[in-house]
Amino acid sequence: MTRLRGAGPIAFFAVLASLPSFNLAHWTINLLIFTLMFAVMSSAWNLVGGFAGYPSLGHAAFFGIGAYAEALWFSHHPVSSGYEPFLLLPAIGLLAVVIGLPVGAVAMRTRTDVFAIVTITLLFVVQGLAFNLHGITGGSQGLAIPPAPFPAATYDRPFYYVLVGLLALAMAVTFAAMRSKVGLSLAALRGDEDKARGIGIRVTGVKLLAFAVSVGLTAMVGAVWAYYEGFIYPQFAVDPLITIAMVLMTFLGGRATLWGPVLGAFILESAQQYLAYQLGGSQVYLIAYALVFLLIMLLLPRGILPTVQDQIRRRRRRQALDSGSPTLTQPANAAATAGGGQA
């Protein structure tokens, strides 16, 4: 098992990277771009909502901050090669970190429910600011970004590859967190923050770190989205449904797992686009979406990956018992593979 540990991610990213060369239809690559956006954002949300156990409902605020930062910069600076907006991404991530740290420091004084409430309030305030600061954001008129001078046939590709890169970054960060002391500290504070503090874990530092990285990644996706769309409006740039999508995808795939949010994004984004396409009008679509949402929460409250892993573990244990082998090696083996399956 251990030999193959790296094969999964490598194969996954190899497939992702080669997809555009199959000359996919425009709608397919468009769907993939949105799926990747949500895969990155769900992975980012997972750092705070999954690993640290702080269910933020305000991440869309940082998505909007990233979008507006990108749009504002390029309403004053020209786009010549088309790649400048991507080069700005690290700066936008950093900006979100700088804004996110004090916000997180205040919001994370509260826990679970109240934290969720404070962050959702933040979201509506940022949306209100986007509407009200006419001088800067253009209010409800929105802002435009000059279109990229990419050839029409391969217009989507640069966006696609940048998002694949961001997904690799988000997953690498997650993997690093899981494998390091930070991940252990996050797990401890998720379990019981006061006890974690009691045994000397730097609770505040660790959770702020997770929050800052998370909102930084989210803002970068927001910036790519703004550039891709070309026009941004307050109600779409700072949209509660974006937050909810991140949360839902993470919950569907499995919180605090590496692949859960990605899996959730691939399933839900396709389902969502399908529903939107089939049901057309946004109202019926909203109802269908809410029903899917309720079903997931009620039937799979722990998410797909943890549930499946549990099943596999249980079956292995049962097989080990059924085989009736008196030697101790077999159950030990089963336990080892089961433990390996968790990562």
Partner: peptide, 20 residues
């Protein structure tokens, strides 16, 4: 944690029904 999401889904459901 889950109830936050469930009640949000209920809000969306009500919103959808109202707008129809």
């Amino acid at each position: 944690e889950l109830s936050l999401l469930i009640t949000f889904a209920v809000a969306l459901l009500i919103e959808g029904v109202m707008s129809i």
